[in-house]
Amino acid sequence: MIEVQNLSHDIHGAPILRDISVTVPKGGVTALVGPNGAGKSTLLSLMARLIPRQQGRITVDELVVGESDDKDLARRLAILPQTVHAASRLTVRDLVGFGRYPYHRGRPTPDDRAMVEDGMRLFDLLPLAERSLDTLSGGQRQRAFVAMTYVQDTDYLLLDEPLNNLDLAASRALMARLRDLADNKDRTVIIVLHDINFATAYADRVLVMKEGRLCADGAPQDVITETLIQSVFETDAPLRTVEGRPVVMV
């Protein structure tokens, strides 16, 4: 369970998050949606201790973010950031292998290696294993990073707009895989999404944010309404219900 209590955050005096309290229970896929500048990425980054906390408190199970040991947190929670760039000389196998670092600290065991192979198989990366990152397409590189996060074997997976560089097929494949991780491997996925239709299609729960506040929270079919789209995104896109779930007509 990730618990956020009274979280506020300023950047250069401008308030980005204002007094947010929310609880994400274990399991399932939770989507963070909202217009640009709503504070979604900041919230995710604070949860993942990428930026130092200013006010409020975040706990991941019994670990307090910002106080607990980084090594312990790294085995509990992994994040895939919005923009990924790393030393291009790495091969895919090297990169995915780093996912095991929190466990072996530089001395991989056969078990670690087996998990890396497993992760690469799961994300169809075996044919690319020896390719270096700078020879891959954007989608392939993204997949390699997701695999690394997967191999980190944490209960919580945080992803910041992972669909940004992906085409339709790759986006659907990635979301399906995350769904599978939540359903069959008992992982908790928290994901920032731009496309509400992806959120309603794959998430169990959506957190809607605007101007640093949480303005709706619940199952997609309950939360996403035409009024919400109008008030939060300030556009009048009509909403249809297709096969029991809301679809925004763009």
Partner: peptide
């Protein structure tokens, strides 16, 4: 070994503990 991880950039190395 820590340098190997640090080379991945601040986000990845934070995430890896």
């Amino acid at each position: 070994h820590r340098l190997d991880v640090l080379a991945l950039g601040p986000v990845a190395s934070t995430s890896l503990g």
